[in-house]
Design a protein around this nucleic acid. Structure first.
Length: 225
DNA sequence: CCAGACGTTGTT
DNA sequence: GTCTGG
DNA sequence: CCAGACGTTGTT
DNA sequence: GTCTGG
């Protein structure tokens, strides 16, 4: 799955990779949690745009925004059919920039977080969906991250991972006119060679722990007990 | 027909 | 809004 | 995902 | 144990 991630690459680098000229300013964030605002790249009327959106998709038919709090991930296998995601999958796909994400390994009842990032240090593009909810003014924009089965790097930690799109697929993913069957084929675990993972401080389990060392490798000896 | 759900994950 | 269960 | 709360009443 | 907030 994907329930915590980081975004610390600078605005210029993201603007270049995602081809969004006017990205908003923001501080590096090492511990982004559900319910917080995240940066989402969407297809606008005249090119790509960066929007801040609440992480946890609130479907357009929801009675209140709380409905969306658990919808932080959407299973790629069913995203085209589920009532909560179907419309977004058809018309509102997005890319969520991330420099890496966290997964927790459970060892003898203890939780050990790991950070997963690109081997080459480039930011990742997580495949997402978004929605606009008119239950408040201004309307709330929210999003979710699509998950799929794990690749060989993640598998020892977890059986699910976020869908990571290569740059060559950005256009197809964002284009509202894209063919459904072709889109579904993009929902697949990333190549094993793309990612590396390592253990990080369990202190980052607290969402208020936002120090840069949240993503630094720690020795596996002595850190758990 | 109306009422009620609509989601993922991990853990037991 | 739309599907499912009763 | 993890951490932290987990309640009611009346009044402003 | 389970829900809410981040």
């Amino acid at each position: 799955m994907c329930a915590r991630f980081s975004l610390f690459s600078g605005r210029a680098r993201l603007a270049r990779l995602f081809q969004v000229p006017d990205l908003p300013e923001f501080e590096p964030r090492y511990n982004i949690a559900p319910s917080l605002d995240v940066l989402a790249i969407v297809a606008g009327p005249s090119g790509r745009e960066g929007h801040w959106m609440r992480w946890g998709l609130v479907p357009f038919w929801a009675d209140d925004r709380k409905v969306g709090l658990s919808l932080i991930n959407a299973r790629g296998e069913t995203v085209a059919e589920k009532p909560a995601f179907r419309r977004s999958f058809e018309k509102r796909r997005c890319l969520i920039p991330a420099d890496g994400f966290f997964e927790w390994e459970t060892i003898a009842g203890k939780k050990q977080p790991h950070f997963i990032r690109a081997r080459d240090g480039e930011p990742l593009a997580l495949a997402g969906l978004w929605e606009r909810w008119h239950g408040e003014d201004p309307p709330l924009e929210s999003c979710t991250i699509i998950t799929t089965s794990s690749n060989a790097v993640i598998e020892p930690l977890h059986d699910r991972m976020p869908v990571i799109l290569p740059e060559a697929h950005f256009d197809e993913w964002l284009d509202p006119e894209s063919d459904r069957q072709r889109l579904l084929r993009l929902i697949t675990p990333s190549d094993d060679e793309l990612l590396i993972e390592y253990a990080v401080t369990p202190k980052m389990g607290n969402t208020r722990y936002e120090a840069p060392d949240a993503i630094e490798p720690i020795g596996t000896q002595g850190s758990l007990f």
